[in-house]
Design a protein around this nucleic acid. Structure first.
Lengths: 196, 196
DNA sequence: ATTATCTATAGATCTATAGATAATGC
DNA sequence: ATTATCTATAGATCTATAGATAATGC
């Protein structure tokens, strides 16, 4: 017991990171504080020196999940020679992402619970949706900005919906069909749509 | 106390109906049995003569939510002169549906919780997804069956994703933009896509 | 002296059950 | 006699807090 402030900051980040993963895996309501702290190598008692309440952690962890996804895409965009929309779609709609929600998109894992969430979470979410729409629009072939935005919104919706459905069904063939079909259709669609 | 068997059957249906609504509104984890029974005009004690466990009710209520949606679409299809895809899209992607999840589509309200659910719920869900894909494919202009199925899967995914996102964001203008844009794009898309 | 974490627990809540009550249905 | 519902509660669980402990940091 009794650690430095630097260590406390590290601990804080570790708790948030684990929570972010667990919330996406088990839902915002499904994660217990004691369990979470244990996974972080700590005990329940310490929790409230890090967060005023459970809800504060939820907001921080959801924000962290958004941040992780953003960093990942940003890295892909600026890292190599940029990322194509096609690559982004394949990076999203695959079975690895489907089977590891804890490391994946927070929208497909948590959207309905976020919709029931408090102001803070929904504000974070609004900002993130705006960012993602612009990000996808930027990856589209050079349509006029309005068309690009509109196609980006459709693409984003289809990605989130396809992953949600692919996870909800128990038949693996149907699940894969959903991922594959939506990926193909989105790629064709976007490249073929005329500029208005 | 002490009622007829016919009344018990009615009571059972009433509990399931209220549960189905509440689960879509508050999530599968958010509904308390005592609260639910009170809304049905009953008390907690009677619950377990109707359901072996809470999970049994969840499965029945999710099935009921699917059934309700199916009846609604079936009625629309056979009722008038049939329903167009365009009508169906508008019937789904509007603010009334967004603001009343309890009476709406179970996928956009519950998909991530269903994905974490038990076998029974996921089996029900698989069947329902299959039905909905076929239903949407049947509403599409006469493409070949494969194309129709593929477009139906994209359409279904986009509907569910758009509603999920529209509910998750707090900015009303953005929320409406998502609904409106996806509705328009889907309508254009489907009518313009060549038969392969 | 301050504080990061721990142990222990109060208080609230939720599922499920036991036993009582008042009807139905043979 | 059977049973649909009620009242009451046991048992489990979860959030949050109180007070102790062992470090840091002035």
């Amino acid at each position: 017991m009794g650690h430095s402030r630097a260590e406390k900051a590290k601990t804080h980040k570790r708790i948030v990171s684990i929570a972010s993963k667990k919330f996406r895996e088990e839902g915002l309501a499904g994660v217990k504080i004691a369990e979470l702290m244990k996974e972080a190598g700590l005990t329940v008692g310490g929790f409230y020196k890090h967060f005023d309440s459970r809800d504060v952690l939820v907001a921080e962890a959801v924000g962290s999940a958004f941040g992780g996804w953003k960093r990942r895409v940003d890295a892909a965009v600026s890292g190599g020679l940029g990322i194509s929309l096609s690559k982004m779609i394949d990076d999203y709609l695959n079975t690895a992402h489907r089977d590891d929600p804890g490391a994946g998109c927070a929208f497909s894992a948590l959207a309905p619970e976020i919709a029931r969430g408090d102001k803070r979470i929904r504000a974070l979410t609004t900002e993130q949706v705006r960012n993602d729409i612009q990000l996808i629009a930027g990856l589209l072939p050079d349509n006029d900005p309005r068309t690009a935005r509109s196609l980006a919104i459709l693409t984003f919706s289809a990605l989130v919906g396809a992953m949600s459905l692919a996870r909800a069904v128990s038949d693996q063939a149907l699940s894969r069909e959903i991922l594959k079909t939506v990926a193909e259709r989105l790629k064709n669609f976007v490249s073929e749509t005329p500029g208005s």
